[in-house]
């Protein structure tokens, strides 16, 4: 700030005074976006809470159809990916080019594992007739007239979360290719940090989805 005539480093956009201001702005912008995401999923959680208070039996009965084991495995997978993305940021801060690339790749791989497990969970349900929507729902193993409502909520919550995972994979690939060009280092790693924040948010949401959907008893 004090010295205005200092030349801008290449990564600083013209309307920022310095790198610091750009980094702070980007990070704050991401946090404001996280506020958005919390309220976006908040709507779904609100619907969940309302229906759970109305029909507690429905939730205990229907949750037996969800596989706790694979849900728990997916939780561990996402936690692992959060850890590697944190390591990736650390590598960038420390100028460790190889560490950055490897950690990003592991994160992408774990995210894909999550989606694969989710795919098998979905296809099993679809196979036995648990489909979203009252008309499509044909499963008869749950003795409750509103069983399809639970699975409607389940599909939308996990589906929207899954979309966030897919977006995350896309972002991570983009960061990975930029990292390979050597764009990031201790001087400039803002996109890595910002994408990391997003990825942790995806993890955060799953941390709540897992007990609320899979561990009802």
């Amino acid at each position: 700030m004090a010295n205005h005539s200092s030349t801008h480093p290449a990564h600083v956009q013209h309307h920022f005074v310095d790198s610091e201001q750009q980094f702070d702005s980007a990070k704050m912008g991401m946090w404001v976006f996280i506020v958005n995401e919390v309220l976006f999923f908040g709507g779904l959680f609100c619907a969940y809470i309302v229906f759970r208070t109305w029909y507690p039996d429905l939730f205990t009965q229907a949750a037996t159809q969800l596989d706790t084991f694979w849900g728990a495995v997916n939780t561990v997978v996402l936690i692992g990916s959060s850890l590697t993305v944190a390591m990736a940021i650390r590598s960038a801060q420390k100028n460790q080019q190889r560490g950055l690339e490897i950690n990003l790749l592991i994160t992408i791989a774990l995210a894909c594992v999550f989606l694969v497990i989710k795919y098998f969970e979905y296809s099993h349900k679809i196979h036995i007739g648990i489909l979203p929507g009252a008309e499509n729902y044909t499963f008869e193993g749950i003795d409750h007239p509103l069983a399809h409502v639970f699975f409607g909520i389940y599909y939308i919550m996990t589906g929207v979360h899954g979309l966030h995972v897919i977006v995350g994979i896309g972002l991570m690939l983009w960061i990975y290719f930029r990292a390979r060009k050597g764009e990031f280092g201790s001087e400039y790693y803002t996109p890595v940090e910002i994408t990391g924040l997003y990825w942790h948010l995806v993890d955060l949401i799953w941390i709540f989805l897992f007990p609320l959907l899979y561990l009802i008893e």
């Binding site: 946090w31 404001v32 996280i34 309220l39 908040g42 959680f45 609100c46």
Partner: peptide, 14 residues
């Protein structure tokens, strides 16, 4: 504070 505020408004909504 931003994160806490978002949770507060979520709780308000519920």
């Amino acid at each position: 504070m931003l994160l806490i505020a978002s949770l507060a408004f979520f709780i308000l909504m519920v």
